[in-house]
């Protein structure tokens, strides 16, 4: 007597994984392109204010940053308001180096945008001094960096 064999599907029940490396590579390339490695170590606090009527900077290549805020002395300890360009703090009473640096960048990239990333507690006097230097350096496109109102704090 012949017994019934259970019918089995002839197809293999495996997810094909041959394309997996390709998919991963595509993801990898996406993230490689998107990544901007943090190029500076912040020496001043960056607690940005929020604003509503803001615009996005699409071309990140054009942006140079100036960081303004209380100097970080230790965890939770902050000193006077200082200005940081690239990796170094600008001398407190001599902002002429900002002008030199920005003029050089302006000649290399005429469409330069200077983003002033200022802490909410910074005083306007310092921000204004920076602006004067930027005017003299002919770097006239600026951007007051702010968060979106209601957005996450950084």
């Amino acid at each position: 007597m012949s017994h019934f064999k259970k019918k089995q599907a002839s197809t293999k029940q495996e997810v094909p994984t041959t394309a997996m490396p390709d998919i991963i590579f595509i993801l990898l390339i996406f993230f490689m392109v998107v990544t901007v490695l943090r190029e500076v170590e912040l020496l001043v606090r960056q607690d940005l204010t929020a604003a509503e009527n803001i615009e996005r900077i699409e071309e990140k290549r054009l942006v140079s940053y100036i960081y303004v805020g209380p100097e970080v002395l230790g965890p939770g300890q902050y000193g006077d308001t200082r200005v940081q360009v690239d990796d170094a703090l600008v001398p407190a009473n001599d902002f002429r180096s900002i002008q030199t640096v920005m003029r050089e960048r302006r000649t290399q990239e005429p469409r330069l945008i200077v983003s002033i990333r200022s802490d909410y507690e910074a005083e306007m006097g310092i921000v204004s001094d920076i602006k004067q230097e930027l005017r003299l350096a002919d770097a006239l496109r600026i951007n007051y960096s702010t968060r979106r109102e209601g957005g996450p704090s950084q």
């Binding site: 993230f31 960096s145 702010t146």
Partner: peptide, 28 residues
């Protein structure tokens, strides 16, 4: 290998869109 690289870039990536108030300063 691809996975390792992918994880590295996933961790490192900060997709922060720069937003702010754009202005054009007057020339000196």
């Amino acid at each position: 290998i691809a996975f390792l690289l992918l994880v590295f870039f996933l961790v490192v990536t900060t997709i922060d869109i720069d937003t702010g108030i754009g202005l054009v300063l007057p020339p000196p």
